[in-house]
Design a protein around this nucleic acid. Structure first.
Length: 578
RNA sequence: GCCUGGGUAGCUCAAUUGGCUAGAGCAGCCGAUUUGUAAUCGGCAGGUUGUGGGAUCGUACCCCACCCCAGGCUCCA
């Protein structure tokens, strides 16, 4: 058995110990479900009308530790439906599970120790007494709907962290603490990148001058790359008549997520996506097969009335800036176009040093075969498109997995998933095939044979949402952005008042050469000015004293220390090569 | 939206658990200093303790409602 599987069993067993401890301390509580997780385990309970508090965790944890030694061996026992029902007659959750197992035609098993019996499929360490009592801890409680369905009752979930031993647990706790230091909300505030106002509203970030410089550096870079692949920019209004979404099918899909704007005599919707608008640019004139592919790109904000509890920093917001793009092409061209988008994504994330194995994974999001009515398009189209995407993923060596039921309603997609500082996964880049919308909008092109045909539409985004993308890279770089991206790239620091003028002169010179430079001519000490520069994570700074004035040079310094004394020309050459 | 926590100056935190005028540091402003590599010194200002109600002789602290934030759940075109 691998170490990972063994840990899985340990965590699973601990969830039983947790349930055992809770059952003892709170006899009224009903146990529901409790699986292991990546970092520990949890168990869901129904505490009835006497919910527990965060403070109670200490008590439960203490009892768990006491119980470990006397918990006894985990023994499997096959039981009949009748026995099972009898044993759990007061527990509606277990009864529901038993019913399901019976329906599936599977054997019901109990796992019992001296202290506690649970309905369970197995996967335990034989002797819970062998688990070190300081290798786990209960971390927090949270609400969770029974069976993950929001129409069901909300249960109380107790989360625990568990590792091989105390050292590993401490390592993880330490990791969480370190991760907290790179939290994009903290760094965003420290570096003055964005802010929120209660007057403006939750989920609506306001971008400062520095944050905007950062955003522009990124979107310029994306445009530079995608420009090589034939994308051209377009511009659309942020509102539309509902007619557009009635036709696209989004109206039905979106419902209350749409934000409405009332005009004098008509009502508009704030756009929650850009594709329908872009189809209308395509549809504005007759297209020949010779015009295809048409590749439209636009970095623009969309607005979604997300549920409040889902908002999170700039990872999940209500005003979302998408670096969106839509390709309209012939069915024959689709594969090549998807490939090109993958290349754009690869080039961009490679530049960031984020395209490394293990740093991301790709989700091939397919249709849920159980619910075909949720999607548009024929079986044939779906199979074909899914196969096409999978082929591209394979030939491009993408670390992909199938995400069944994760597809958009109009087609399958490749989603590029990246992790934030504490390991939560977020979708950034995406390529989506769509054979529904062109048809709905009656898009067409005239083919070689003179016949009108329906083009394929490909949706794509490189950063995805600029907000979410920034949340990830702020945490990835802990604010220490690569030079080309840094909101302030260079700081010019005179040692004392007498070099102020020269510092300003150098600062202007650098700015004229297209870099984001600032001078610090405050009356602070050199040490203080350097400290501030480092705190702001500015990649390079120049020190100017009497020596530099005499030599007509600047002293260049970066994050790794002193680079050296350079003339203006040398400096510009150096910056150019970064 | 739901569950559980939280909200004190721009930021980081304090206030002996219901009892003197809510205090520090940093940032800001004023003054002195003119600095050679991660905090120069002094002064000033800064608060309706998230908001609104209530209980109390008295509340940052107790109760109610709402707002905002976080960790989860649900959702994520």
């Amino acid at each position: 058995m691998s170490e990972k599987e063994e840990m899985f069993d340990t965590r699973h067993t601990l969830s039983h110990v947790l349930a055992g401890a809770v059952s003892e301390l709170y006899p009224e509580a009903k146990t529901a479900l409790g699986p292991p997780t990546e970092t520990g385990f949890y168990y869901d309970f129904d505490f009835g009308d006497k919910p527990i508090k965060e403070d109670d965790l200490k008590r439960i944890e203490k009892r768990m530790k006491e119980l470990l030694g006397s918990f006894g061996k985990m023994e499997e026992k096959k039981v009949s439906e009748k026995e099972a029902r009898e044993y759990f007659k007061d527990n509606p959750y277990k009864l529901e599970l038993i019913e399901e197992i019976v329906k599936e035609g599977e054997q019901i098993t109990f796992y019992s120790s001296d202290k506690f019996t649970d309905l369970c499929g197995g996967g335990h360490v034989k002797d819970p007494g062998s688990i070190p009592s300081d290798s786990f801890t209960l971390s927090h409680i949270a609400g969770a709907y029974w069976r993950g369905n929001e129409n069901n009752k909300m249960l109380t979930r107790i989360y625990g962290l568990a590792f091989e031993n105390k050292e590993k647990l401490d390592d993880y706790l330490n990791f969480l603490e370190e991760a907290g230091k790179r939290d994009h909300r903290k760094i965003g505030k420290e570096m003055d990148l964005f802010t929120f106002s209660e007057l403006v509203g939750p989920g609506l970030p306001l971008w400062t001058t520095k944050g905007t410089a950062l955003r522009k550096a990124i979107t310029d870079k994306i445009q530079e790359i995608q420009g090589k692949y034939g994308f051209e920019s377009v511009t659309i209004p942020h509102i539309t008549k509902m007619a557009l979404y009635d036709k696209s099918g989004h109206a039905e899909k979106f419902g209350d997520e749409l934000l409405m704007v009332k005009g004098k005599d008509s009502e508009f919707a704030l756009k929650p996506m850009n594709c329908p608008h872009h189809t209308q640019i395509y549809a504005s004139r007759p297209r020949s097969y010779k015009d295809l592919p048409v590749r439209l790109a636009e970095t623009t904000m969309v607005y979604r009335d997300e549920q409040k509890g889902e908002l999170l920093g700039i990872s999940r917001v209500r005003s979302i800036t998408q670096d969106d793009g839509h390709i309209f092409c012939t069915p024959e061209q689709a594969k090549e176009e998807v490939l090109n988008v993958v290349k754009i994504i690869r080039e961009f994330y490679t530049l960031l040093g984020m395209y490394e194995k293990g740093n991301f994974r790709v989700l091939l999001s397919t249709r849920d075969p159980e619910e075909p009515e949720k999607y548009i398009g024929t079986d044939e189209q779906w199979k074909d498109a899914e196969r096409q995407l999978e082929e591209t993923a394979k030939t491009q060596g993408l670390p992909y997995e199938i995400g069944e039921g994760e597809a958009a309603f109009y087609g399958p997609k490749l989603d590029f998933m990246f992790k934030d500082a504490i390991g939560r996964e977020w979708q950034l880049a995406t390529v989506q095939l769509d054979f529904g919308m062109p048809e709905r909008f009656g898009l067409e092109y005239v083919d070689k044979d003179g016949k009108k045909k329906t083009p394929v539409m490909i949706h794509r985004a490189v950063a995805g949402s600029l907000e979410r993308f920034l949340s990830i890279i702020i945490e990835h770089f802990a604010g220490e952005f690569p030079f080309w991206m840094a909101p302030v790239q260079i700081k010019v620091i005179p040692i004392s008042e007498s070099q102020k003028e020269r510092a300003e002169e150098i600062n202007e010179m650098i700015k004229e050469n297209g870099y984001r430079s600032r001078s610090d001519i405050s009356d602070e000490s050199l040490s203080k000015k350097i400290r501030n520069t480092k705190k702001q994570k500015v990649p390079y700074f120049l020190v100017i004293g009497d020596t530099e004035i005499k030599n007509k040079t600047v002293t260049l310094e970066g994050r790794e220390g002193k680079v050296g004394e350079k003339t203006e020309t040398e400096l510009l050459t150096f910056l150019k090569e970064l």
